[in-house]
């Protein structure tokens, strides 16, 4: 067994969950990731996550695992010299600091690339390296708010929803960009800057909605939340409450394939001529079918439906809280993955 990035030295100058996790991915796959920590605050804005005393710092062990830590004082000449020596040795630098902070420590790309032209300099910002908002703080909530999805995720009349998914997209995007640049460097020896932003990441996570809006360019269904009782396909992307209040979700875009089995499970005649074609189900009699599903799913508890879906290997599930999903929802296959055994 080897490590994919075993010859790669990464300097980790990050403070946010998203970017720190990005560097952790590089460490997980064998990069020597050296976290730079400073003994004197370099800026008032330097709000490092305060460790919670006496309890497991689960967050740190997720986002800083497999890393090394070097603590130095950049206020001293020798401390700054050490920074230069470290940058000279590094293959990659990953940061989420503001431009001005980086420049103050001569850790901006222009300074770093003078010392080490082959370095891959990965930076994540709030809104990207260009444009009027390039210096806004890198806060995922602000980026998410700009992405257009928050107003339409919930039910009509409900507050906008922040999911936090954008920050996770950003972690992987930055790592992807860095390794892509490393591959280019393998071929050519050339270093460069890699940029991602929380805004870009949130937009990427919303790809299908955003692209559809760009192309279709109108439609209340993109601007206002769609009630779960008005979904475009009653058998896909839909939610129905079961008898005990647990939610059933169906993902059967290809309704022809699933209709007979689902109809039977719900006590509906598959040949019922209101619903016996895809078009009837998804267009002509869509609302009628939604209401019928709504009524039928409430006749049995979630556990019943889960059993039905499992038996028929249907693309549907009963939504658990995390708590329940960990104990019995996760397929055995996935559990072994989540618990890590395939990786040892």
């Amino acid at each position: 067994m080897s490590n994919a990035l075993e010859d790669v030295i990464v300097l980790d100058l990050t403070r946010d969950f998203s970017t720190s996790l990005s560097a952790a991915f590089l460490a997980d796959f064998g990069g020597r990731v050296i976290r730079l920590e400073f003994l004197t605050a370099v800026d008032q804005a330097d709000h490092q996550l305060a460790p919670t005393k006496g309890t497991w710092d689960f967050e740190a062990d997720l986002i800083h695992r497999n890393k090394q830590s070097v603590a130095l004082d950049p206020a001293t000449d020798k401390g700054r010299e050490l920074l230069v020596e470290l940058t000279a040795k590094a293959d990659v630098l990953v940061t989420d600091w503001m431009m001005a902070e980086l420049a103050a420590l001569s850790l901006d790309y222009a300074s770093v690339s003078r010392i080490n032209p082959e370095i891959i300099y990965g930076r994540s910002s709030g809104f990207g390296p260009k444009g009027p908002d390039k210096d806004l703080p890198a806060i995922d909530e602000l980026a998410s708010a700009r992405t257009g999805m928050m107003p339409i995720l919930g039910q009509p009349g409900e507050p906008p929803v922040y999911t936090g998914a954008g920050a996770m997209h950003n972690s992987v995007m930055l790592a992807f960009g860095v390794v892509t640049a490393l591959i280019h460097r393998q071929a050519t020896g050339e270093g460069q800057e890699v940029d991602t932003s929380l805004f870009a990441a949130n937009m990427y996570g919303a790809s299908l909605d955003i692209q559809a809006f760009l192309a279709i360019g109108e439609g209340d269904r993109f601007i206002h939340p769609i009630s779960r009782l008005d979904v475009s396909n009653p058998m896909s992307g839909s939610l129905y409450p079961s008898k005990d209040g647990r939610w059933v979700t169906l993902t059967m875009p290809d309704t022809d394939r699933w209709w007979p089995g689902l109809a039977q499970a719900l006590g509906i005649d598959p040949e019922d001529d209101r619903f016996n074609t895809h078009d009837k189900r998804c267009e002509e009699n869509r609302l009628e079918l939604i209401h019928l599903f709504e009524e039928r799913f409430q006749t049995q508890p979630g556990s019943h439906w889960r059993q039905v879906f499992d038996e028929k290997q249907m693309s549907a599930d009963v939504i658990g809280r995390i708590a329940t999903s960990w104990s019995w929802t996760i397929p055995a296959s996935a559990r072994s993955r989540a618990w890590g055994s395939p990786f040892s």
């Binding site: 067994m1 080897s2 710092d57 695992r65 090394q68 830590s69």
Partner: peptide, 26 residues
């Protein structure tokens, strides 16, 4: 803890160490 989201047959992700203490490897 969460595991690793990518499986690789020959160079799998590994947990070698937890988060370091500040300056642990200076």
């Amino acid at each position: 803890s969460l595991g690793f989201p990518i499986f690789m047959s020959d160079s799998p992700a590994r947990l070698q160490s937890l988060a370091p203490c500040k300056g642990q490897h200076s």
